[in-house]
Each structure stands twice: as C-alpha cells, then as structure tokens.
Design a protein around this nucleic acid. Structure first.
Length: 640
RNA sequence: GGCGAUGUAGCUCAGAUGGUCAGAGCAUACGGCUCAUAUCCGUAGUGUCCGGGGUUCAAUUCCCUGCAUCGCCA
C-alpha cells in the first residue's frame, strides 16, 4: 500500500495573466496526481494564487482598481483556466484567505518566540518593480537590470530570519535524502549555493511603505515579505497543525516548481519548516522553461503563448500530450506550433489513433463488434509475447512516472503501440479472416489486440484523460469506472468475451498544413514573429482595392457574437460594417474616430447582418489595433 | 569576474570506467501490405561526435586550451 499523496503547484503571483509556464506546471501536477490515483492512492492537489506585495498594489493602481478587486479578478482568471485544461485540483488557496492569514501569524509567532527572528536596520538601493534591494554592482548603468529604472535609496528597520543557523543542517538533510531535490542538477545547484554562507532573510516591510500584506503578529507596524507569506500556503491549505488533511497528506508532500523559484523552495522553505518545527516536505520537483521563439517565457517579458488558444485549435489532450512528451522534465524545451503538429501527426494520429481505428474496425468486421472467446491452445501459439510486452510497458511506465521522467513513461507506451503494429503485420488478420480454418487464430489475434488497447487506454489516462475514456467507451467498457488502476491494467485478459464494441472513431485527426506550413516555417527562419510576406502583386491589382477614410458614427455590440461589433461608418454615404474587434475596443471608444475602410469589398452577411466593407487593423493574435489617420479628413476621402 | 552545464545525422536528442560507441525518433528515398486516419511494416543512407593541442597501441569518450550557447553566484 502506498501513502496518501500530496502534490502542489506554486501559488501564482497575480500581477500577470496565466501563460504557458503556469499551464505546464499545473498540468504536470495534474498528471502526477492522476498517476498516483492509478495506484489506488488517496491524493490531494493544491494550487492557488499569491496576492500580496508591492507589485500587486502597483498593478491594481494602473488598472484603477483596489488591490482587493484586482486580485479577485486575476485570481479568478487562474481558477477558471484550470478546468479548461482538465486539471482536477482539490483546493485553491489564496494568500488573502482569512484561514491562511491566521496560520501565517501563528507560525511566525512560533519562529519569533524561538528566537530565530531579529530586528535590525538596513539601508540599500531598492527597486520597486522587483520588490527587492540591489547591491551597487548588480545595477546596469545605475539602473535596475530588469526594469531599467534607477533604484531609490531606502533606509529602514526590518525583521530578519536567521537562516545561517540552519545552513549546515540543510546541507546534511539534502545529502542524506538524495531525492529531496530532483532532478539532480538542481540538487547540485542548491548545494553549490550553500557552499557560501547564507545571508539572513529579510521578512518584513514597514507599513509606511506597504500595507497590502499580512501584519506581523509581534509588530503591528510591519507586514510580512512576500516569500514568507507565500510559502506557508503549502501547510495552511491543509489546516496546519491539527487538521485531518495535514495529518494525512503532509507526510508525503511533493512540490512542483519552475527553476526560477528553486532558491525559495530549495533553501528558504526547508529552513522555515525546520525553524517552525514542522517535518520537511518529501520532494521538490524542478522543471525548466519553455522557450518560445527563442526568447524565454516570463512574467515580465510579455512574450506569451496563449495556452488556451492552441488547445482550442489542436485539442486539449494533444496539447497536454505534447507538453509532457516533448519536455525532458528539468530541462528547457522549445515550444513551437510546428513541433506540436508533428507530434500530433506522428505519435497521436498515425500511431495511436490509427492503431485504435484499425483494430476496432477489424473486430467489428470479423466478429460483428463482439469481443471473441479464445481457445487456450491457439492462444499460446499466436500470442507472440504481446502480453509480456504489455506488462513491460506498464512496469517502465510506472517507474518513470514515479520519478517524474514523463517523456520516458510515454516512450514506454509508444513502444507497446509499435509492437502492436508489428504484431498485426506478422499475424495478418485480414488473411486469417479469409479462411474458415484459421478462425481460432483470428480470434486470438483480435482478442489480444483489444486487450492491449485496453491497457494503452489506462496508461494514457493521466496525460490524456478524455481520450482514455473515449477508448474505454469504444471497447465496450465503463469510462466512469477506475479502469486506469494499475492493478486492473496488469491483469491480462480482463476484457470479457462477449463485450459489445462501439464503431471506431478518429481519436486524433491528422493535421494538414499545406501553405500554412510554409508561412510558419518562414516565420521561424526570419526569427521574427511575423507571417511571411504574400506573393508579389502589380499596382493594377492594388488599384482594384478602394480604400476610404471613414468616420464611425455609431457602434454597438452584437448579442451572442463574442468578437463582433456593428458599426455605422460615414464614407460620404453611410455604411454598415461588422468588425471583429470587440476583444480590443468597446463601442463607446470607437464613435467619432476615423478609420480606414475597404469600401468596395463584396458585402457579406456576418451574424445575420450585412456588412459593406472592412476596417483595416493590425492583428496580433486576439488583439487588434485599428488603423487611423494622422489628422482628420473629410469622410469618404480616398486613400492610396 | 567566479563556479557550473551544454556543444553528436536536416531537426529534437540518447550514448560508453578510452577499443562492435557512432545511435533513436522525426523528416527524406526506395520496397511491401491493404485491416486502418495516404495510415502500417521493411530497407537505405548522410555525421572532421564544436575548433586546436596533449596523454595512449587506441579518444567523440581522459587532460589542457580556445570558441559558442545557457544557468547560478558576486
């Protein structure tokens, strides 16, 4: 029996919207959680948002909102994203939760009473964007390297946490528990950092400078510094110290984090736990970055792949599969649409999808869609080791999933898929089907293949839960049952003869790129984000387009149309134009503005309204910016 | 500036205490099958294993050095 399993993501800082990096971390946690439920383990999955600090106050102010309203909004974005990615968390914590705050106070008081927190004066160069002090040498031209603004000199008294006291203890702990921080490269990184003496950690901010935080229990003039408040979420969410959840799950706690927050999780957090007299977490799993178009994914760089967008285009399960299959956990990876499409076509459509389809079709054709009964003697002759291949795949899968080596876990499944394709080739069921005398052999072959499909559907469950269920359904099984339990998967010949199968479906349609492919190819080669320039045209061709200056005289949203606005535009004569820009503009802000209109575009009915033209706009993904004129001209003026 | 990692087929990456260690997947070419989502199976390649120097009977693998990329620290 395995212990109950507790997995966490970091609580995400709410000064930015969710991006691919957040999605990856959270999907990893979801996959791990689902894997452990395959072993019949009880699981608890925690995620949430980190909502205090200066940056939040600033972001809120920029949007003209109170911090409270602002954090509610962004936190809501995260919370509503996860179900869309089929992520099943048990609890969503917010550092502004009352229950969290009271536990932070309790633990801080405990550490303070133990004498590990002291009061001291500090002067330094402070960057408000980074919420941290800088040493003079760290600055570039006297400016913060991230924000390119000059830091301010701030002198203040603060509370400090004596980390150095626990340094040697931590080194020993890491050495005695080789799996405490994985993969190994990150353990080494932490150890090498610990070779230098640890500085004490500043854990407070005076309220004169920052009010948006948790008040220190031992000094009401101060609030906690972001990390101290944030890290404690992992125990406060379980109802430390007496909650049943805490007792059940904390002994097997695993944290998933990106390498950017290795230090807080690999150093501050274990020391905080030690100082508070709380047992250590079990394991820290550190992953790398997804690089998108060469530059990194980052909260502050704004170069962000909308995870939602790609999962909508190519399907959620394919998206989850790609993230888990293409990244070696711990290392950086490159994210590109072309790589995603290649994975989908070769691994999902050609291998898995096609295999599923060919087996089901044969079963339906040869056995009227009923799982055949098999003859034991013929079975031995025609099994060809498929059962042991399946068992091998399960074993390897289990080992790799346990250690977060997801890409190898998936490779083990795909090796079985490849064996099944070879098995079909060797046994040639379509030949067996032609003769009555080989009926028994055919039964064995098809039965074995269906059985192997059952196993595959269970193994892909943590990564592609929806596809797993679809496969179960078509195999005549109940997708709501825990079909993915490893114990059931290991039981070869579980599929009962007589089970009614469903007609096959294309699990993953092939994606044909054609011209699209070339444009995205050029995109990558030129290094820029832009689509390739279209083929050359002559001036004559251009002259056929009648562009006019127009003035928007009325604008309204179209009910039930997500992006569409209905505009009345004055082009000398009044025209109705439907434009897909409501994601970027409200109707009110458009009225009175001058726009550039394609005046001779063939009218088209959009959302039931006849549109007599098109606005010019720069389009960046979902966002667009309308083209306007430098100064006001008469409505209807031609443009060339 | 210090420490560390990485540099292997067109692409993404495996690899060995120095001697079948030059590999896999994808992409490419050719052959086969027809149950299948033009899918599957088989065959075939190409590589100064980043450059230079050294140790050795033998180095892609060890040492030194240079270059490039990346990370951590100051």
């Amino acid at each position: 029996m395995f212990k109950p399993f507790y997995i966490t993501t970091p609580i995400y800082y709410v000064n930015a919207r969710p991006h691919l990096g957040h999605a990856y971390t959270t999907i990893v946690a979801d996959v791990a959680r689902r894997f452990h439920s395959m072993r019949g383990q009880e699981t608890f999955f925690l995620t949430g948002t980190d909502e205090h600090g200066d940056k939040v106050v600033r972001s809120a102010k920029k949007e003209g909102l109170s911090p409270r309203t602002y954090v509610d909004q962004i936190s809501g974005l995260f919370r509503s994203l996860w179900p869309e990615l089929n992520i099943q968390y048990n609890y969503f914590i917010r550092t502004t939760d009352v229950s969290h705050i009271s536990i932070v106070e309790e633990i801080m008081q405990k550490i303070y009473d133990a004498g590990d927190i002291y009061f001291s004066e500090y002067e330094g160069l402070y960057c408000f964007g980074c919420e941290r002090f800088y040493t003079a040498r760290e600055l570039v031209d006297g400016k913060c390297p991230d924000h390119e603004t000059a830091p301010e000199i701030i002198k203040e008294s603060n509370y400090f946490f004596k980390m150095g006291r626990y340094q040697n203890w931590l080194i020993d702990h890491i050495k005695n528990n080789p799996d405490f921080i994985t993969p190994e490269r990150y353990k080494n990184e932490v150890l090498s950092f610990l070779k230098e003496p640890l500085e004490d950690l500043c854990i407070s901010r005076p309220k004169t400078r920052l009010k948006w935080g948790i008040t220190l229990p031992f000094d009401e003039n101060y609030v906690t510094y972001v990390w101290f408040d944030a890290l404690l979420n992992y125990v406060s969410a379980l109802g430390y110290p007496d909650g049943d959840l805490f007792k059940t799950y904390w002994p097997n706690a695993r944290h998933v984090v990106g390498k950017d927050i290795l230090k807080p999780h690999g150093i501050y957090w274990p020391i905080m736990l030690k100082a508070a007299g709380i047992p250590e977490y079990q394991q820290l799993h550190v992953h790398g970055y997804w690089n998108v178009d060469q530059s990194k994914m980052s909260k502050s760089i704004g170069n962000v792949v909308e995870p939602l967008q790609l999962k909508n285009v190519y399907g959620l399960d394919a998206f989850r599969f790609f993230l888990m299959r293409d990244m070696v956990f711990g290392l950086d990876s490159n994210f590109s649409e072309a790589a995603l499409v290649q994975r989908i076509n070769s691994d999902l459509a050609n291998d898995l999808g096609n295999l599923f389809s060919r087996i089901l079709t044969m079963a339906i054709k040869y056995f009227s869609g009923v799982v055949p009964q098999i003859d034991a003697k013929v079975e031995r002759e025609f099994e060809l080791g498929l059962d042991s291949e399946a068992l091998k795949a399960i074993t390897e899968f289990e080992n790799h999933m346990e250690t977060f080596v997801f890409h190898k876990a998936l490779m083990a499944i795909w090796e079985l898929i490849s064996h099944m394709n070879k098995y079909i080739d060797l046994t040639t069921p379509w030949v067996l089907a032609k003769k009555k005398s080989s009926r028994k052999q055919l039964e064995v072959v098809i039965y074995n293949l269906l059985e192997a499909l059952r196993i595959i559907s269970g193994l892909i469950y943590p990564i592609m839960p929806d596809t797993a269920k679809t496969m179960q359904k078509h195999l005549g099984l109940d997708p709501e049952k825990p079909f993915y339990h490893l114990e059931i998967l290991k039981r070869w010949k579980s599929l009962a003869p007589g089970t009614k199968l469903l007609k096959s479906v294309a699990l993953f349609p092939r994606i044909d790129l054609k011209e699209d492919q070339t444009s995205s190819q050029t995109k990558r080669e030129s290094g820029a984000d832009m689509p390739a320039v279209k083929p050359e045209i002559t001036l004559d061709t251009f002259d056929k387009i009648d562009l006019r200056a127009g003035t928007v005289i009325h604008a309204e949203a179209i009910p039930r149309a997500k992006k569409m606005l209905k505009l009345e535009v004055d082009l000398g004569e009044k025209k109705t134009i439907v434009a897909g820009i409501s994601g970027s503009y409200s109707p009110e802000e458009l009225v009175g503005r001058q726009v550039i209109v394609v005046a001779n575009l063939k009218p088209a009915k959009l959302m039931g309204i006849l549109s007599n033209g098109m606005l010019l706009a720069a389009v960046e993904g979902d966002d667009c910016t309308i083209a306007t004129l430098d100064k006001k001209v008469k409505s209807g003026t031609p443009i060339r």
